[in-house]
Simulated assay, not measured.
Amino acid sequence: MIPRTCKRRIPVALLLVATAATAADTGIVLDSPRGGWRNGSLAEDKESAIVAAYPKPPVDRGGQKNRTLIEGQLRQAGKNRPPGRLIVNGIDMPLYTDAQGRFVKPWAFGPGSNSVEIVAPGGTRRRLQFYENHAEKTHSKLRVVLGWDDPRAEVDLHILTPDGEHAFWAQPLLKRGGGLDVDSVDGGGPEIFSTATPLSGNYLVYVNYWGNFNAAGYNFDPDAHDKPLITTRITIVSNENTPDERQETVVVPLRRVGDLTFVRSLRYGEKK
């Protein structure tokens, strides 16, 4: 595994709408989210379903509120083209599309200034920023984002908390608050864990190559994926969207269905 740390500069402007070029220039259409001020949420509670996506609703088992769709089209993409890239607040992951170049990704945006950048396979870009001012949202003090580079593989994020709770797809919410915002099974992620009230102590982060997923559903065929070596990127964010934000990215390879890999232990709070 290859750790990398960085500190992201948070824009001070409250209203920024930035695009490198128009959709006509870049061949990139971004239908959602929109730039500017926004007060939007897609799922208001854990029972809400994502039904607005095209070409099909993404499967999202996350339990927390306020997921948002990132959706649009790479007009020059096709099923034989390499994937594009999705960069959200500095977190980079592959962007897979259907044969018409359409894409849909659920995401959980925190309050404050957020950025979304789409990079087409040829390198053209479209970028926007918006200010999320949802009154019920609080800043995430600890967030973990998982993405991977095989659209047919289903990889799961597992978080063990200092008090022994286990957040994962079958139990997305923590009793003390926090849990999985987004648990996306199609197209390489993301899976997102976040908490605004982390406990002091050690959090353990794991990834599991659970199986494969396609239009017919789940399967455990060892050959029903695109790559013999799946690369996962786990980004750990502390104090998101504040001047004290820090990011660390760990790269972990997965080879076989069933692989459960320890990513790292991270400590929150002061040492006693």
Rank of each mutant, 00 (worst) to 15 (best):
G40N: 09
G40M: 06
G40K: 06
G40W: 07
G40Y: 10
S41V: 03
S41D: 06
S41L: 10
L42E: 14
A43E: 02
E44N: 10
E44T: 11
E44H: 09
D45W: 03
D45Q: 09
D45K: 04
D45A: 08
D45F: 02
K46H: 11
K46L: 07
K46R: 12
E47Q: 10
E47A: 06
E47F: 14
S48H: 08
A49K: 14
A49D: 08
V51F: 01
V51G: 03
V51Y: 04
V51H: 06
A52C: 02
A52Y: 07
A52H: 10
A53R: 05
A53P: 04
Y54T: 11
Y54G: 02
Y54S: 12
P55G: 04
P55V: 01
P55R: 07
P55C: 07
P55D: 09
K56V: 10
P57Y: 02
P58G: 00
P58D: 03
P58I: 09
V59D: 13
V59S: 11
V59T: 12
D60L: 02
D60H: 00
R61I: 01
R61M: 07
R61V: 01
R61L: 14
G62T: 06
G62N: 00
G62Q: 05
G63A: 11
G63L: 05
Q64L: 15
Q64K: 08
K65R: 15
K65A: 14
N66A: 13
R67D: 13
T68V: 13
T68Q: 13
T68F: 12
T68I: 15
T68D: 09
T68E: 14
L69R: 00
I70A: 02
I70R: 04
I70C: 03
E71L: 07
G72F: 06
G72M: 04
G72R: 05
G72S: 03
Q73W: 09
Q73H: 03
L74I: 11
L74R: 03
R75G: 00
Q76S: 15
A77M: 05
A77E: 00
A77Q: 07
G78M: 02
G78S: 15
G78K: 10
G78T: 14
K79L: 06
K79A: 11
K79H: 09
N80I: 05
N80S: 14
N80T: 09
N80C: 02
N80A: 09
R81V: 06
R81N: 09
R81P: 01
R81I: 03
R81S: 15
